[in-house]
């Protein structure tokens, strides 16, 4: 039984690292991967427990660069089991997060995106230290471009195109703000591209057309794309925010970018802040500090490259080059502590 259906397959030429289905078959998981397997995905450490190779191996191939093998003191623990429920599902797949049941799924094609969904929910609910925004984040010249938005606004597609145009990737889902430095740390998860954007992404990343698509509940079919396949690059850490653009997709070719007052930007950031309920008034101080240092815009995005052109023009006009070292030279911080899980 296959783990996912493949749509839109075509001749894609030489596939990029991590994307070649043939390579996938010839690249078995390392010994000892069976269960559990630990991955440090930027600031988020994940431990996948699954005896089922249909999920374990695709997950590993998406995150093999982040594989750390042995156990760590802190991690989000994801377990995928095959179970039988008398009603209503019968035989089904169960996804648990830190021991708590999160999803019950009938189809194996739905498991991997729901694993990703479960990790995201755990990050939003439990990752300590950071103030978290629902946003895509990329970086250039030592500064970050933050794209905060609700779902279905085109964050991931725009983020993917920016990566392929030379930006470095931090996340397509979370802006993780260190409250002490007001800088951003990465969570470079696989980009989750919805079916409506498959053709757009295929146009600038032909290898993506050969990727399997998965079922993600009401969100429809999705593809999970390794950001390194869009353009090999190092993941930056500790990046200050240079620009914030709130994207909204409008079905017209010409994108527009309107300056936004910093107070308005702060207000809109609060609307996409996962941790506002946790940190409450302190959130205003942190996000207020972020917007004071950033150029803020409302983006009505259109055709993808025209949108990137508009963003990059504004970036050149409003964000100074920092003279910071290349992100590839920045050292990685210590692993963030997530108390209460596997604590000694």
């Amino acid at each position: 039984m296959s783990t996912a259906s493949t749509t839109g397959r075509r001749d894609v030429g030489p596939a990029l690292d991590g994307y070649n289905p043939a390579r996938r078959a010839s690249c078995p998981a390392p010994p000892g991967l069976e269960s559990p397997a630990y991955y440090r995905i930027g600031a988020v450490t994940v431990c996948l427990h699954s005896a089922d190779a249909r999920f374990r191996e695709p997950f590993h191939h998406l995150y093999q660069r982040h594989y750390i093998g042995g156990p760590t003191l802190s991690a989000v623990h994801i377990r995928v089991d095959r179970i039988i429920r008398v009603r209503p599902l019968g035989r089904c797949f169960r996804i648990c997060v830190d021991g708590e049941e999160r999803f019950l799924l009938r189809k194996p094609q739905a498991v991997l995106p729901h694993v990703e969904w479960a990790i995201n929910a755990a990050v939003a609910a439990t990752l300590p230290r950071y103030h978290q925004l629902h946003a895509g984040v990329v970086a250039r010249d030592g500064f970050a471009l933050v794209l905060p938005a609700q779902p279905q606004c085109g964050k991931s597609t725009l983020t993917a195109r920016l990566i392929s145009r030379g930006w470095s990737y931090l996340s397509d889902e979370f802006a993780l703000i260190d409250p002490e430095t007001l800088s951003l740390d990465p969570y470079p998860k696989a980009l989750c591209i919805k079916e409506g954007s498959f053709e757009i992404v295929d146009a600038f990343c032909p290898a993506a057309g050969a990727l399997p698509s998965y079922e993600k509940s009401w969100k429809g079919r999705v593809r999970l794309i390794d950001p390194q396949a869009l353009r090999p690059h190092r993941t930056p850490w500790g990046i200050p925010v240079g620009m914030i653009a709130f994207p909204r997709y409008v079905a017209r070719p010409a994108p527009t970018l309107h300056p936004l007052s910093r107070a308005r930007a702060l207000f809109q950031l609060l609307g996409v802040c996962f941790t506002f309920g946790r940190y409450r008034a302190a959130t205003l101080d942190v996000l207020g500090g972020v917007v004071e240092r950033a150029a803020c815009f409302q983006l009505e995005s259109g055709e993808i490259d025209a949108t990137c052109d508009v963003l990059e023009a504004a970036w050149r006009a409003h964000v100074p080059t920092s003279g910071r070292p290349d992100p590839a030279d920045l050292t990685h911080p210590e692993e963030p502590v997530r108390p209460g899980v596997e604590a000694a």
Partner: peptide, 30 residues
């Protein structure tokens, strides 16, 4: 914070002023 100031109009409401505008937070009602 360099420019934005924060003060309390009354016990319940926190005002975060940025430039000539403001974001007001009511902790009681969140």
């Amino acid at each position: 914070m360099p420019e934005a100031t924060r003060w309390r109009i009354c016990r319940e409401v926190v005002v975060h002023r940025i430039d000539d505008e403001a974001v007001v937070y009511d902790p009681g009602a969140h």
